[in-house]
Design a protein around this nucleic acid. Structure first.
Length: 744
DNA sequence: ATCCAGTACGTTTTT
DNA sequence: CGTACTGGAT
């Protein structure tokens, strides 16, 4: 399927070939959007191997695991069976830290804490240090710590530079935070970069060893590297400065996460002998799309100008769609996609809808369900963030790392074991001075006089449960998980619950087991520990499956690196794109513009930018202002299409609404067109499932047998059915439950 | 210890 | 409009 090296090489342009044939010494490839970057990187790796470089000496860094997987596949197609190291920076960090754990004073079974976990840790720090930080949110403190780590600042270094009051508070918390993390044998995302970076800096021997091991280093999306990542790249390229970085400053969109655009802008200064190659021919988009995107990005002052060009067709003009409100925008976009597919022009997989905020996905979801158009929300991680799944994962983490107090606290009373807040306070008071994990303390609960009765018994049972479960850790990942779910009582808790949502939770937990099973099927050497690591390091796009024939919905950030025949960018309004929190500083605003640029350049043939006259926000409907970026497009390059209901009604209604006061807009709000709590009439809201349920319908369920629907509530995917079986009444989600209608 | 009602509070973007 | 957390009652 994938063409051979010769075939691919023969079709490359001159600058592309130049990049591919470059072997030794530093190389900077400035690759515009759609410039065949992936092809060039893959070919270059293949060429290195053909030139006699051992695959094990090549390290390729990608931005997501998905990109890593794809590159591995492509290289394998050209040169089958070669084992080279392709991963993200974070995955590289984990592997190095596990391998060199002893040398760095780490326990190699460390747990990786995500955003939510580290916030818990910060809160624990604030509690235990009894600090008055009411002026600052834990989140702000956590953010400051993360930023410090991105800058390679350890607590002592940070403390020295802490000038203002906030920083002084952060410095104190940072120190306690680090101690807690060490006690719990946990590392956060930033540590996965910080530790390797510091190790390379401080351990000359280790640095030399790794530098020699990875003689050829290749980094994609280099414009989005931060200081720690830069230090890693640099440390691996001293004795063997064969560092090839690929990127596009105009696509740098992670400044807020510590990325430093200077890394790419200053590459030539860091490596004066560097070869610089520009890839400016675009193979992806039509002339019309490229011209509009290029015109927009030219408004950024802080950039290296470049000339993008394409030999592709002119194509149709970029469409700017005006809608009445967010709901109609979602409906209109989905309807247009649907009719294009039904006209036989396109497949659903040809379309992507891109948005600035995840919060915008809700109205889209309803529109998709209502119009019965298949779609995938590219937000793979969300599933694992559901409470029930996090609980099960916490059990597993605690099994693998008994010192993980965060996970302990999460599940010790889930399901309820009669262990309340006060008992846990006693437990913590016992454990802390003894430098003991909470689980160890629980094992010796008999020595804690303050805890007695039900709580004492509960803790003992919990400790015993974990000891027992630890014995099954060698089983397959899905089996371990099943054991956890069953023996912890979690399954029973959900199964016997009367809560309507708990049946869905049970289904989610089952799905988690399936995921673990599939993970093991793909490669049966992988363990439960690998599974957890995989989930934690997964990015949103990792869950995106382009083979499925459905419309892809994702954030602009997630869309980086992807391409689609037709792209819809929604909510092009001031405050959303650019985001209101990024409008004050010029540097931030320019990043927003780059984000818009990234979105627009994902499109191959058609591009539409929509915005609404009114947008619902925190339950209130407000007038929206079109994005300033729309004004920055070439006027003759776009075609405006008014889809708003006022235009369709052909009245002057829009003008009168516009002139109305806030009080009048409240009246509009109450008419039920926006966020009315009243369920919409059934005629405009067919249910999510193909089956038409009504109260009184007799249905069959695989587990409970035949029953009668007694109540229906909710809409779309959240449509709920109450069904009375001979064994009692139960609630189901219409879209999830395995039900069939019983005739007669 | 647990449950519930009431309220404060908040929204970028993510490895 | 949600949710996440608090403080009350049971």
């Amino acid at each position: 399927m994938t063409p051979s090296f010769e075939e691919t090489f023969s079709r490359l342009t001159e600058p592309q070939r130049e990049a591919v044939l470059h072997v030794d010494g530093p190389l900077l490839v400035l690759a515009g959007p759609g410039s065949g970057k992936t092809r060039v990187i893959t070919c270059r790796v293949a060429n290195l191997i053909r030139q006699g470089v051992r695959p094990s000496q090549i390290l390729a860094i990608t931005f997501t695991n998905k990109a890593a997987g794809e590159m591995r596949q492509r290289v394998d197609a050209m040169l089958p069976g070669q084992r080279l190291w392709i991963s993200t920076f974070h995955a590289l960090g984990v592997r190095l830290l596990r391998q060199y754990a002893d040398r760095l004073g780490l326990d190699k079974n460390f747990t990786i804490y995500d955003q939510a976990d580290r916030l818990r840790v910060v809160k624990l720090c604030l509690d235990s240090a009894a600090m008055d930080v009411s002026r600052f949110t834990p989140d702000a403190i956590q953010g400051a710590i993360s930023k410090a780590k991105n800058q390679l600042q350890t607590p002592d270094v940070y403390a020295r530079s802490a000038t203002d009051y906030f920083k002084q508070i952060v410095a104190q918390v940072y120190e306690v935070y680090e101690k807690k993390m060490r006690d719990q044998n946990a590392l956060d995302f930033d540590d996965l970069l910080l530790w390797p970076a510091l190790a390379l800096k401080n351990d000359a021997e280790l640095r030399a060893e790794l530098d020699a091991r990875f003689r050829y280093v290749l980094i994609d999306e280099y414009q989005d590297t931060n200081k720690a990542q830069y230090a890693i790249a640099r440390g691996l390229s001293v004795d063997y400065p064969n560092l090839c970085v690929v990127g596009d400053p105009d696509q740098s969109v992670y400044r807020w996460r510590g990325s430093d655009i200077r890394n790419i802008l200053d590459f030539e200064r860091d490596f004066p002998q560097a070869r610089v190659i520009r890839l400016e021919q675009n193979f992806r988009s039509t002339k019309a799309i490229l011209r509009v995107a290029d015109h927009l990005i030219a408004h950024n002052e802080d950039r290296k100008p470049k000339t993008l060009f394409t030999a592709n067709d002119e194509g149709s003009k970029v469409g700017v769609l005006l809608c009445e409100n967010g709901l109609e925008e979602a409906d209109a976009v989905v309807a247009r996609i649907k009719s294009a597919v039904e006209a036989g022009q396109r497949h659903y997989r040809d379309f992507a809808i891109l948005m600035r905020l995840n919060a915008l996905s809700r109205s889209l979801e309803t529109a998709f369900v209502r119009q019965r158009v298949p779609f995938q929300m590219v937000r793979g991680v969300a599933f694992f963030e559901r409470k029930e799944n996090r609980d099960i994962l916490a059990y597993l983490r605690l099994l693998l790392n008994p010192r993980d107090d965060i996970s302990f606290l999460r599940v010790v009373n889930e399901p309820a074991r009669g262990i309340g807040k006060t008992s846990l306070q006693h437990l913590q008071a016992y454990a802390e001075p003894r430098e003991m994990s909470l689980l160890t303390a629980a094992e010796q609960v008999d020595k804690i006089p303050a805890i007695k009765g039900k709580a004492s018994l509960g803790l003992k049972n919990f400790a015993r449960l974990l000891t027992e479960l630890r014995e099954v850790l060698d089983a397959t990942p899905d089996e371990v998980m099943r054991q956890v779910i069953d023996r912890s009582g979690y399954r029973r808790m959900l199964k016997e619950s009367a809560e309507p949502d708990d049946q869905e939770r049970l289904a989610n937990v089952e799905e988690l087991v399936t995921a673990a099973h599939q993970f093991h099927e793909e490669d049966n050497s992988r363990t439960i520990s690998d599974f957890l690591e995989n989930i934690t390091l997964a990015s949103d796009v990792d869950g995106f499956d382009e083979k499925q024939d459905c419309v892809a919905v994702m954030t602009l950030h997630a869309a980086k690196g992807l391409e689609f025949p037709v792209v819809y960018m929604i909510a092009n309004e001031q405050g959303i794109l650019p985001h209101e929190r990024s409008m004050k500083e010029k540097a931030e605003l320019e990043e927003e513009r780059r984000l818009a640029f990234v979105g627009m350049t994902r499109a191959e043939e058609e591009l539409y930018l929509s915005y609404a006259r009114m947008r619902e926000f925190r339950g209130q409907t407000l007038y929206a202002v079109p994005s300033m970026f729309l004004e920055e497009l070439p006027h003759d390059g776009v075609e405006t299409i008014d889809l708003s209901s006022s235009a369709n009604r052909g009245s002057g209604a829009a003008a009168s609404w516009r002139s109305q006061s806030a009080g009048a807009s409240q009246g509009w709000y109450e008419t039920g067109f926006t966020s009315s709590k009243k369920p919409a009439p059934r005629t405009v809201d067919p249910n999510a499932s193909d089956l038409d349920y009504e109260v009184g319908t007799m249905v069959h369920h695989d587990v409970y047998g035949v029953g009668r629907i007694t109540d229906i509530s909710g809409h779309g995917v959240m449509r709920k059915l109450k069904i009375r079986f001979s064994t009692g009444e139960r609630n189901f989600l219409a879209s999830k439950a395995k039900l069939s209608i019983v005739q007669g």
